[in-house]
Design a protein around this nucleic acid. Sequence first.
DNA 1: TTGTGTTTTACGACCTCC
DNA 2: GGAGGTCGTAAAACACAA
Length: 219
Amino acid sequence: MNPTVSDHNMAFISQLYPDVYTHIVPQGEVKPPKRRRKKSKRAVAAGDGSNCLFKKRKLTDEQMNMLEMSFCDEHKLESERKDKLAAELGLDPRQVAVWFQNRRARWKNKRLEEEYNQLKSSHDNVVVDKCRLESEVLQLKEQLFDAEREIQRLAERVEGGSGNSPVSSSVSVEHNETSFFGDYKVEEDGDYDNMVYPVPENSYMDGEEWMNYQLNVIF
DNA sequence: TTGTGTTTTACGACCTCC
DNA sequence: GGAGGTCGTAAAACACAA
């Protein structure tokens, strides 16, 4: 690597990343790989004994930081910039290109992970909201049930009051009430639609009477 | 020290764009 | 058709618990 360029870059980076250069591997001290990778097809095709071109070697901190900075500027790599970077870092342009490819992949994964977390958190909020609304609906249905019951009670009282004395009417209503609401059913799904009010025992009604009765009970 | 999981480097296959 | 992109994966390098 060109020492002038390198020194310049290091000074520049050290301004941005004060902690970065505390333990840089000195030039020429790159450790040889512990294990050798199998020759790639490309290496085999090259057919040379010194396959150092194809050895995997970890980039130095300096190289990594320069590449990171360059990546921050622009994720895409034009060939001019690639050649310039490669020359500055003493790398093969192909290595720079590969590094950018891998870096883009990591960046994309990270972005996807962040998007996933955001979606998950908003989904969780929606679920909580749904539960809250459902319990509100249940509560409102309870209130509706009570109101209808109250209406029923009042309607019976009015009906009973028309023919009988107040005392006997009161007794009769209470009697009817137990048999009425003993059969009162709420749908399994909590829905009050299609609910039918049972008619009092020993009373016969034709279709129209029955309909009027049901309407009467409800309203 | 060693087994194992993770990260990094490198490549091939395939696709798109000019 | 070539350059450069993504995607999937191999293998080296590394971290770390047992």
